[in-house]
Design a protein around this nucleic acid. Sequence first.
DNA 1: GACCTGCTGCGGTTTG
Length: 721
Amino acid sequence: MTQAPAFDQLASPIQKWIRAQGWGELRPLQVRATHAILGGEADQIIAASTAGGKTEAAFLPLISQVLTTEPRLGGFDLLYIGPLKALITDQARRLAEICQETELPVVPWHGDIATSTKARALKQPAGILLITPESLEALFIRRGPEIPRLFAATKAVVIDELHTMLESERGVQLRSLLNRLDRRVGRRLRRIGLSATLGDMALAGACLHPDDPAAVGQIEVKGGGELRVQLRGYVSGGEKDQSTTDAIAGHLFQHLRGSDNLVFGGSRQSVEIYADRLRMLCESEALPQEFYPHHASLSRDHRDFVEKRLKDGRLPTTAICSSTLELGIDIGDVTCVAQIGAPFSVASLRQRLGRSGRRAGRPAILRQYAVESRLEHKASFADQLRLGLLRATAMIELLIEGWCEPPQSRALHLSTLVHQILSVVAERGGIRAAALYDLLCRQGPFRSVDKPLFVAVLRAIGHPDRALLEQASDGLLLLGRIGEKLVEHHSFYAVFQTPEEFRILHGSQELGTLPIDTILAPGMLLIFSGRRWLVQSVHSEDKVIMVTSAHAGAPPVFGGDAGQIHDRVIERMFTLLSEKDLPAWLDKTATELLQQARSNYARMPFKHGVLRLGKTTTVIATACGTVRTTSLALALRSFGYQVQQYDGFLELCGDGDPCEPLRALANGSLPDLWSGDPSLVFEKFHPWLTPELLQADALSSRLDLASLPETCRRILAAPSL
DNA sequence: GACCTGCTGCGGTTTG
């Protein structure tokens, strides 16, 4: 059977639009997507680099399908889910252009959209609805009875930036909402996922269609372009006048000036420091400004300004940014991506690099900067092993090999489960426990939650002290006193936690916000928005900090949490320590630092994976990632040791031979992980769970008790150095 | 030892 050319399968208004674009032909990705979408009913994953035309690949055939279906029923024809408001606004503009010659309305829907627009869309739902997971959540809670009317005729759900929606809290929430949507309209809505960064297409397919992952079609166009990498090493605390910060800023200034670039600073504080240095370098050379900071504490106005400058491409622009510019609206091609300090995951490094070298014939360029401290006489083992440089090197090697972290699927997500329980009860007004379990755990995303665990969660949040839920005499679950309050407030819709923030005002101008846990007092100095400021007053009630311009500054302190490094990254760091090869992309200093780390490691008298340093101090090479290393750290604490954690290593302080607890654990003895009363409240609804449930949740995601014997056996069997 | 994401409905008043 011969297939009609993709173009001929599209509806005529779409063909007209394509001709008006002056496209000679459809791209291979769009041809394949058109055949797959119009030729069957299967879910699809469309994966290609940022500028690969994924949006058109999905929507040209989907809109064609809508236009050629008769009769058109009421309700939205297509549903698009986007993780960012800015992305929704941007995509709505593009889709409105495509739909210009059709009758299809394009409806962006998020917190910044006027209520009148939403009211109109609810009255006459049609066309393409573009919405955030949170606003969809709000529709369920506020407009529960109308859901079938709104989505009865919807042909497909397009999920943009699918990789951010896999096993994250938001991803589980979205999958739960889509499952609830399917149940309400009485059929399964087809799902189309779009992404630039998917490490494992099969795992992503399992997230999209857990009942039949093999049925998910995969349309992938690999970048395959040239990648140029350099890792530059720097040593801080040296005798030279120039600080490493100045040296890196100078190098960035020299190599990035005159083109568009992204510099990922690692933390907002470091973003501010580098933006400040680069601004001063421009000033001292009497050059126009082209380096701008970009992070979430800066005002939307400032961020829009930087994004627009990058996108329009007329003036050379380098954004010094945090992960704000890792995904989101199309900012055009950048010449190079720089990363200061080791990244936390290969996946995010890959996503960042995807912003460079997207035009044909132009390489993607990654400039990695690693700072290590000068080794003093009694340097710590961690400094001697150059762990930051080692991690950056390991991650770049894995990136080049095409690997990135897979989604973690064993997590219970109990905080998100509580959220969805409250949401379903609010939507329905009341529901029986068995029906709730079916909806969320049997059919929905909480499949690792068994019945006894589910009942324990219901009991916890139904306890009179917590009062999220209560049970009527006929058994129906209803919202409790506190549950009612939580669901009523608009802050309920997001499943993730956010700290409260202070607004920073310079006169009447808002510069941005800082987390409330920052310690700031009048008279203190800070660098913010790339400039220096003096704190004039702090108003706790209005959450406002007034500042004036200053000439000298100390950087503000931002809060934060620890990241999770994957086992595979740490394993590669140990390989790097013991082998002899030197990656060609290390500069002279980085090469010296790596060789130094190797010779220092070889000189450390490790007996198997254990190094005794003095009478009470011991270093253990766990050689595994954050989850397993943290599990061992907690276990050893229960044996009375003080434990400090590093990448792939633990430093123990305490009496006795630590090999004894290691042997006991290797033989399967169960430690009391909770003896030191570790904090287990990380997520939004954790405060309403019991200690037992918090422990179960932690064991499913942040800890791995089952791995302990094997971890300890490997440490005890490691070759001695 | 870090970063990011999101947000409704109602009632009263004013204006064309």
